[in-house]
């Protein structure tokens, strides 16, 4: 009965593996386009702040066709792009249908459409601990009729992928300076018991906390280690000598 769910889980795991392994943001975006029912996607790291003067221009990668990218640059649309303008201020993910375009933006939208691009979109604002802001946007296929359903089905994946892309972008910009992630004692304990073959129910009992809390530790530990499964996370944590099961 759960086979549908498992299928989506397996599919999701494969998708995440491939995207995490992609050699850079550009390749990751291409993969996301292949793996999800979308037209295009874009990752945009905002003009960086004063604290990082070595980068003074935004970092943008996109799968949009080159003629649209050229047009966007030529017309300096970045200044009036309503998705971007609001995206750098908003914190919650949003469907493009929530945005009220102003006069200036309408011209851009008409132009956008004339390039054969889809009318639907979904954008995920990203903030990191240093306060850097980025936006991960997904654009529907042209003529897509069930965009709202697609959003509902995949938004949680996309929200996590936003984080994956962000890490990749930071790595592309700053190199491999991020050392092994800082895992909390509870996350380490969870990894330790997982390595010994315990599932979240067992661990919840051992550590005397709720099952949901353990699943949350598993998720955060997995994400910090940039892995798509707990098995992988345990292997990586062992390799990094974070745990010694």
């Amino acid at each position: 009965m759960n086979s549908g769910v498992n299928d989506q889980d397996t599919q999701r795991k494969h998708a995440f593996d491939a995207i995490i392994d992609a050699k850079d943001v550009e390749h990751a975006l291409k993969l996301i386009c292949e793996l999800y029912p979308i037209g295009h996607c874009t990752y945009h790291l905002a003009q960086t702040m004063a604290s990082e003067q070595n980068v003074d221009s935004p970092f943008v990668r996109t799968t949009y066709p080159s003629d649209w990218v050229a047009r966007y640059l030529l017309k300096d649309y970045v200044k009036i792009d309503p998705i971007l303008k609001e995206g750098m201020l908003r914190a919650l993910p949003y469907a493009w249908s929530e945005i009220e375009p102003d006069e200036e933006a309408i011209e851009l939208l008409v132009d956008f459409q004339s390039h054969g691009l889809g009318a639907g979109g979904y954008s995920i604002p990203i903030t990191d601990k240093v306060g850097r802001r980025a936006l991960f946007s997904l654009n529907s296929k042209a003529g897509e009729n069930s965009w709202d359903e697609i959003i509902d089905q995949y938004k949680e994946d996309w929200i996590e992928l936003g984080q994956v892309l962000h890490k990749k972008a930071i790595k592309e910009l700053y190199g491999d300076v991020d050392p092994a992630p800082t895992l909390s004692p509870r996350e380490l304990e969870t990894l330790h018991w997982t390595a010994l073959g315990k599932d979240y129910k067992d661990i919840a009992m051992i550590l005397d906390v709720s099952e949901h809390t353990i699943r949350t530790y598993m998720r955060t530990a997995r994400l910090k280690l940039n892995c798509s499964s707990m098995t992988q996370a345990v292997a990586k944590a062992s390799k990094l000598r974070l745990i010694n099961p």
């Binding site: 995920i124 990203i126 601990k129 949680e156 929200i159 996590e160 936003g162 984080q163 800082t182 895992l183 909390s184 509870r186 996350e187 949350t216 530790y217 998720r219 955060t220 530990a221 994400l223 910090k224």
Partner: peptide, 8 residues
């Protein structure tokens, strides 16, 4: 410290 993920 561990509660640091996009869905949290």
């Amino acid at each position: 410290v561990s509660f640091e993920a996009p869905g949290i």
